[in-house]
Simulated assay, not measured.
Amino acid sequence: MEKRILTCIAVDDEPMALKLIEGYIAKTPFLEMKNSFSNAIAALEYFNQNPVDLLFLDIQMPDLSGMELSKIVKEKTKVIFTTAFDQYALEGFKVNAVDYLLKPFNYAEFLVAAQKAQERISGSKNSGNNTESVAGKEFLFVKSGYKQLKIALDQVLYFEGLKDYVKIWVKGNPSAVLTLMTLKSLEEELPSTRFMRVNRSFIVALPYIEEVERNLITINNNQITVSEQHKEKFQEYIEKHSF
């Protein structure tokens, strides 16, 4: 996957917060700051004439909120929210934000979010085949509570969707990692050579399938149903690997 420089805008009505983001952008090699604004209306006026790849948006701002701005520009650019209020996280994921940074955040957290944006934007530009573009991905960083957890993909048994959350079941761990994310957005980040969506609520790790009986998959002694919608694709995989 060819990665490129991402043009970006920062919007925050707090001068110190805006200055911090500007500094983080300046020292990130694959980000190019085009402008910064203390209110969303001015940012929108600029954006309409000068579209960019990525917006760093505060949410609580007067006149036009960051959430409202993100809905206006969502077809043209990606968004990373920056806010001091964690109650907006769920709404942020509903508008398919790349990430959600809770203030105060450090450069390491900022960089993880920016890299996620680069992966998503570069993948979408790569001949329309995003699953192939991330085939070599070895891990994901996911937000769980106030932490960014590194999840090794070769240790994941399956992902379980629960409305706007995802449970990540990892080999050797009796309990799942819970992260605020939709299964659909996660699916876009996963290599199709290793993972497959088998029903509305589950994405399974193909190497960990222990047994298949009709429409039931067994992984780690747990049975997962293959829905009619995904049955044909799954059966093709099984036949391809049968002797």
Rank of each mutant, 00 (worst) to 15 (best):
R4F: 14
L6T: 02
I9N: 03
A10E: 01
E14P: 04
M16I: 15
M16E: 13
E22L: 00
G23E: 04
G23Y: 03
E32C: 05
M33T: 00
F37D: 07
F37E: 05
S38K: 14
A43S: 12
Y46V: 09
Q49F: 11
Q49D: 11
Q60D: 08
S65E: 08
G66A: 05
M67E: 00
L69S: 06
L69P: 06
K71R: 15
K78W: 05
K78E: 13
F81S: 00
T83I: 02
D86L: 04
A89G: 06
L90V: 12
G92I: 00
K94M: 04
V95G: 01
V95C: 03
L102C: 01
P104V: 00
L111M: 08
L111N: 10
V112A: 08
K116Y: 01
G136F: 14
F139E: 09
F141D: 03
I151K: 12
A152G: 10
L157I: 11
L157R: 10
L157N: 13
F159C: 10
K163G: 04
V166R: 11
K167C: 14
N173Y: 15
A176K: 10
T179V: 13
L180H: 12
M181F: 09
T182S: 15
L183M: 13
E188C: 05
T193E: 14
R194H: 14
R197G: 08
A205E: 07
A205Y: 11
A205V: 09
L206G: 11
E210W: 06
N215W: 05
N220P: 08
Q223C: 09
S227K: 08
F234N: 05
F234A: 08
